[in-house]
Deep mutational scan, measured.
Amino acid sequence: KVLVLALYDYQEKSPREVTMKKGDILTLLNSTNKDWWKVEVNGRQGFVPAAYVKVL
């Protein structure tokens, strides 16, 4: 399983997205889209901007 680090806070803007806080460790589920990556955080799955996270 691939983990990513949240570099910035992100507030979800649609039901398909998830909120994350800077420093959160998320599970990367899909990174085929260069702009939006699907992650799991706190038991929820959704998209975050790829530029806001870094693969650990």
Rank of each mutant, 00 (worst) to 15 (best):
W36Y: 09
E40T: 07
L7S: 03
D35T: 14
V41R: 13
S31M: 11
K34L: 09
G43P: 02
Y8M: 13
L56D: 04
K38C: 11
Y52P: 00
V4E: 00
V55W: 06
A50R: 14
G46T: 02
Y10N: 01
R16P: 06
D9P: 07
K38P: 01
G43V: 05
K54D: 05
K1R: 11
W36T: 03
R16T: 15
R16G: 15
L5Q: 12
K1P: 14
D9I: 02
I25T: 07
V48A: 04
K21Y: 13
T27R: 10
A51I: 11
V55Q: 07
S31F: 12
E12H: 11
T19S: 14
N30K: 09
L29V: 15
Q45C: 09
E17T: 10
S31N: 15
L7G: 02
R44Y: 07
V18C: 07
W36G: 01
M20Y: 02
T27I: 12
N42Y: 12
D35V: 12
Q45N: 10
A51D: 08
K22W: 04
K1S: 13
V39P: 00
S31T: 11
W37L: 06
L5S: 06
R16E: 13
Q11P: 06
Q11A: 15
S14E: 07
N30V: 10
K1H: 15
S31E: 08
P15L: 11
S14C: 07
W37F: 09
L56M: 09
D35C: 11
G46D: 01
K21I: 09
L26H: 03
L26I: 11
L3C: 07
V55F: 13
A51Q: 12
Y8C: 08
K38A: 08
Y10S: 01
W37P: 02
A6L: 02
M20C: 06
M20N: 00
V18A: 05
Q45D: 07
D24H: 05
D24N: 07
N42S: 12
D24L: 05
K38Y: 11
Q11T: 15
P49Q: 02
V55T: 10
D24A: 09
D24K: 03
A51K: 13
Q11K: 13
R44N: 08
E40Q: 10
R44K: 15
K21P: 01
L28V: 12
V55L: 10
L7V: 08
N42T: 08
N33I: 07
D35Q: 13
L28A: 02
S14L: 08
W37T: 04
L26D: 00
S14A: 11
V39I: 08
V55M: 14
K54W: 13
K22Q: 15
P49V: 02
V41K: 14
V18N: 05
A51S: 08
W37R: 02
L56N: 04
V39D: 00
V18H: 04
V41S: 15
K1V: 15
K21D: 04
T27G: 06
S31P: 10
L5G: 03
T19Q: 05
V2S: 09
Y10L: 01
G23P: 00
N30E: 12
R44H: 11
K34H: 13
Y8Q: 12
V53H: 00
D24M: 12
K22H: 07
I25W: 05
D24Q: 14
Y10E: 00
A50F: 03
K38T: 08
K13Y: 05
P49H: 02
T27Y: 13
V4W: 04
M20E: 00
T32K: 13
V41T: 12
V41G: 10
Y8S: 09
A50K: 08
L56Y: 13
K34M: 11
L5T: 08
G43T: 07
K54L: 15
L5R: 09
D9E: 06
V39G: 00
W36K: 03
K22P: 03
L26N: 01
V53N: 01
R44E: 06
P15D: 12
V4D: 00
I25H: 06
K21R: 13
L56H: 07
A51G: 09
E12P: 14
N30T: 09
G23N: 07
V4C: 10
T32F: 11
K54F: 14
K1M: 13
Q45P: 05
T19V: 03
V2P: 13
T27E: 15
K34C: 08
Q45Y: 10
V18P: 01
T27N: 09
E40I: 07
P49L: 04
L3K: 08
K22S: 09
V2T: 15
V39N: 00
G46K: 02
S14D: 13
D9M: 04
Y52C: 05
V41D: 05
R44T: 08
S14M: 08
S14K: 06
L3T: 10
M20P: 00
Y10P: 00
Q45M: 15
E40H: 06
V55I: 14
W37C: 04
L26C: 08
S14G: 12
S31K: 13
P15M: 09
T27P: 15
F47A: 03
L3G: 03
Q11G: 10
N42Q: 09
K22A: 14
D35N: 09
L3W: 15
Q45F: 12
N42C: 09
A51L: 12
V2M: 12
E17C: 06
S14Q: 08
K13L: 14
Q11S: 14
N42A: 14
D9R: 03
K13W: 04
T32P: 04
G43S: 09
Q11N: 12
E17D: 06
R16K: 12
K13T: 15
K34G: 11
E40F: 07
D9Y: 04
N33A: 11
T19G: 10
L3A: 06
K21V: 10
V4T: 03
L29P: 00
E17M: 06
Y10Q: 01
D35M: 15
P49W: 03
V18F: 13
V41W: 10
K38E: 14
A6R: 01
L26V: 07
K13P: 05
L28I: 05
R44L: 08
D24F: 05
